[in-house]
Amino acid sequence: MGLALSVRDLVVEGDRGRRLLRIGALDIPAGSRVGVRGPSGAGKSTFLYAIAGLVALKAGTVTWGDETISAMNASQRARFRRERVGMIFQDFLLFEELPALGNAALAAGYAERAERGRIADGAAAMLAHLGLGDHADRAVDTGSGGERQRVAVARALAADPPIILADEPTASLDRAAADRLIGDLADLAETRGKTLIAVSHDAALHERMDRVIDIVDGCWTGEG
């Protein structure tokens, strides 16, 4: 089951105190599918990285379930991400020297020994679920953009995390591949009860979400 998100009085600043993001109060129930939209440079990716514990906060709290990650140190936040968060990026971020299964099972190399087999099995199962079961041993640089992004999705979900965070996941894909990925993410989140938060300019992705929030000039301005 997904985790609920609670954000309170969040402020992220850049160089020389320039405000990058300010959110007073935002609550996302567990198992929700949420799209985040807004102009380029509005602070959407900063929001995603803030709730993942990847950027320092000037002020405020970020709480997932009963764990306030904004109160954790860097190593505790890294552990939280390993155990609770699957992240999907626009540029895939795959290791070209590894085959599809090697990329999808990458988290197993950083997990506790007792968890490695489960994660590797989860990676293989997710590749199969996404239609790449016959591509497990194939080099990722031979795949199409859609296939490479599905490998990245399998990697994000191999450990069965309750949270999926995606940053412009369809931006590098053609329309057909983007639509397939949107369907995969929305269906996986719904059937497995995961909390999905996806930053995107893609209206087709927003249509599959339960709600869409708008961020403009570093502020949450409401919902569409």
Rank of each mutant, 00 (worst) to 15 (best):
L3I: 04
L3E: 11
D9W: 00
G14M: 10
R16Q: 15
R18D: 09
R18A: 14
R19Y: 06
L21Y: 05
I23M: 07
I23D: 01
G24K: 14
I28M: 05
P29F: 01
R33M: 12
A42R: 12
G43K: 11
G43Y: 03
S45T: 07
T46W: 09
T46S: 12
F47C: 06
Y49C: 14
L54M: 12
V55D: 02
V55W: 04
K58M: 02
G60F: 02
V62T: 02
V62G: 08
W64L: 14
G65K: 12
E67D: 12
T68V: 04
I69E: 02
A71Y: 01
M72V: 06
A74Q: 14
S75D: 13
R79K: 13
F80V: 05
F80M: 11
V85Y: 02
M87A: 07
I88R: 07
D91S: 15
F92C: 11
F92P: 13
L93E: 12
L98C: 05
G102K: 14
A105K: 07
L106W: 04
L106Y: 12
L106T: 08
A108W: 09
A108H: 08
Y110W: 10
A114W: 00
R116S: 06
R116M: 10
G117R: 11
I119H: 14
D121C: 11
D121I: 02
A123T: 03
A123L: 10
A125R: 15
L127W: 03
G131C: 06
G133E: 11
D134F: 00
D134M: 06
A136Y: 00
R138H: 10
R138Q: 14
V140F: 01
D141V: 09
S144T: 12
G145P: 13
G146F: 04
R148A: 05
Q149E: 10
Q149G: 12
R150A: 07
A152M: 03
V153D: 08
A159K: 15
D160F: 01
D160A: 15
I163S: 03
I163E: 02
I164F: 02
I164L: 15
L165M: 07
A166G: 11
E168Q: 12
P169D: 09
D174N: 09
D174G: 03
D174C: 09
R175S: 14
A178Y: 03
G183Q: 08
G183M: 05
A186M: 08
D187V: 04
A189V: 03
A189L: 06
E190A: 15
T191H: 13
T191F: 00
R192K: 13
K194C: 11
D202G: 01
A204Q: 11
L205P: 02
H206K: 02
E207F: 00
E207V: 04
D210Y: 00
R211S: 10
R211N: 07
D214M: 08
D214I: 03
D217P: 07
G218K: 06
G218C: 01
C219K: 14
C219A: 14
C219S: 11
C219P: 00
G224T: 11
G224Y: 03
